[in-house]
Write a protein that binds this DNA or RNA. Structure first.
Lengths: 340, 340
DNA sequence: CTGTTAGCGCTTTCAG
DNA sequence: CTGAAAGCGCTAACAG
């Protein structure tokens, strides 16, 4: 273990440049009230010594370390990975760093991480993914608590409360339209696949139900199936389900992995896609173009959602107003699994 | 915009609990020299008021905010997303938060982000992915500079220098073996697909070359192809390449997406996989099981790499020694694209 | 334009 | 076991 070299402070710089620390601070913060000459001298010293201002001290002094907290269930999830990537890059362009927490689905962990973000005095927190919205109001209190201090941005979640700002994709319409699409392709028994109950899942489900209703198909609850785990498990779960005697000619899945799991099930059983079974996924992830036939999916405009979120946030942080709820419409991307 | 509620400080707590701030601080840091009674009283006040200690101030006082910086090219990349997910969860279990920067491939941005991490006085930085190692030594100076202050952990990169610790998968052997596998399946013209030149890519390439040599196949440089972009672009790039008259009966790709791009090319042209063309990818990502046939791939033990990295780091931060270079062997995962 | 100085909220000796 | 007080490195009035 080598000896840590001590890092320079503003005092070192001020001494070397022959000015006060205030002047150095002004230079660091691009204050206009520094003469060109002084500024240059200070900058030269800074460059030469490789000085980086201590962010803690800056944060303490100014009340902000220009940091945003992002919570997501797991960045290993493709959709969330994309979201975090867009968010982080956007935030950094605006001069903010991001602290990331992958909280998983455990409620206690979510709450703990959220509280910890407060301790770190982040300037705002972004909750990415609808997993953060609990079905009962009191369980959402942990979000509202934080919003009393700093803005909370929800990505694909909605809570109506002060200082909470929501950007979501129109999952309801997306699934209404997708179910309609399947109906028009001739499907009459449409399997609805989901993972966890979540705010977003419920909207999707409602869209699905409403479409069935409008097509005068009675809702068959046995066609609403919850799946867990990775591809292989999804597949085998469906095989079991099928062998129990359930029949279906269409699949509407809450994410692309579920949809591909269904395709793998079909291949194993010998059901033809799209002739005997049409499939629509969601998120329009890279997975959808890996399979063959390629998977029809729903593009929920992740990037746009993220851009909106960051720009709202920047506005808020500058003391301006922002819209509390923005719903973005989605695009249906037809591919091979619905071709007939 | 609502009024930000002012957050509690250690003074509020000390006043309410009728003790000095030093005592509160001791309670916060689990110091043994506080009487049980006092501790309980203080804890009660803390809980009741929802107080969270200010991390900046803590960092300033103690010299550490228990934060690790992670740089990666892009978390939207499946492999890196997995790595970041494993790293973050592991770090948090050890009481560390992580600041994430998706730097992209631009050298200047990498350097800037690395310097910024110093300013934030992170306790260490982890460079995830071999994109951070430049081919010429002076360009790696920016990494060495930081390592003078804090440990730098490389994931899939190697620089021999003090206070830099490297965990890598054995890409050389992985690709040597994979090329051998293709040879044994009868391939004689093996296309090597890569994206950027990187430390890892070079090892893979060496493995490929060495295997060819041992099989007494002369290296055909026209079979070493650099691809860019997403699946569609990879596919069309290969179509062009093929139409230019290049022939090959095997593909060895530096990541799964490239491999699947090759599969899509083959499907479009009408080349049968695996009969006429065998394909091996790398990373054993979820993509490899989405395609049909499923893609043979190389499992490079991402999780193990991350666990090792974090545990080395924790050891270092406690002042203990750690191994400077650890190479993990990989697993070849045979699937449908190499079945003959 | 520049310097002085009082915090920011916590940690950490040093006394008691 | 507990408290007082000196920093930690920077920001932001306030004076000049």
């Amino acid at each position: 273990m080598i000896e840590k070299e001590k890092q320079h402070t503003i005092y070192d710089i001020s001494k070397k440049a022959g000015v006060s620390i205030a002047t150095v601070s002004r230079v660091l913060n691009d204050s206009p009230k520094v003469s060109q000459k002084t500024r240059e001298r200070v900058l030269a010293v800074i460059k030469e010594s490789g000085y980086e201002p201590n962010a803690y001290a800056r944060g303490l002094g100014s009340g902000s370390m220009r940091t945003i907290g992002i919570l997501c269930a797991d960045v290993a999830d493709i959709y969330l990975a994309n979201a975090v990537s867009f968010l982080e890059k956007n935030l950094r362009q605006n001069g903010f760093n991001t602290i990331l927490n992958c909280t998983g689905d455990d409620y206690k962990t979510k709450v703990r991480c959220m509280k910890a973000m407060e301790g770190r005095r982040v300037d705002a927190v972004i909750l990415a993914g609808s997993q953060y919205i609990e079905s009962t109001l009191p369980k959402n209190q942990y979000i509202i608590d934080v919003s009393r201090h700093i803005p909370v941005m929800l990505l694909n979640g909605y809570i109506k409360s002060d200082n909470i700002y929501c950007n979501l994709s129109d999952d309801y319409s997306a699934f209404y339209d997708a179910a309609m699409e399947l109906y028009q392709k001739g499907c009459r028994k449409i399997l609805f696949l989901y993972r966890e109950i979540s705010y977003s899942r419920n909207l999707k489900y409602k869209g699905y139900c409403e479409a069935l209703k409008d097509c005068q198909i009675e809702l068959d609850e046995s066609l609403v199936l919850r799946c867990n785990g990775k591809m292989e498990q999804i597949k085998s779960q469906l095989i079991t389900y099928y062998k129990e005697g359930h029949e279906f000619d269409g699949v509407l899945a809450c994410d692309d992995e579920l949809a591909i799991g269904a395709m793998k099930f079909a291949r194993e059983i010998g059901i033809h896609i799209p002739e005997e079974l049409a499939v629509i996924g969601c998120n329009n992830s890279v997975l959808s173009i890996c399979s063959s036939p390629e998977l029809s999916s729903i593009d929920n405009k992740c990037e746009l959602l993220c851009i909106n979120t960051v720009s709202s946030l920047m506005r808020l942080l500058e003391g301006q107003e922002a819209v509390q709820k923005t719903v973005l419409s989605t695009d249906y991307i037809p591919r091979g699994t619905t071709k007939r």
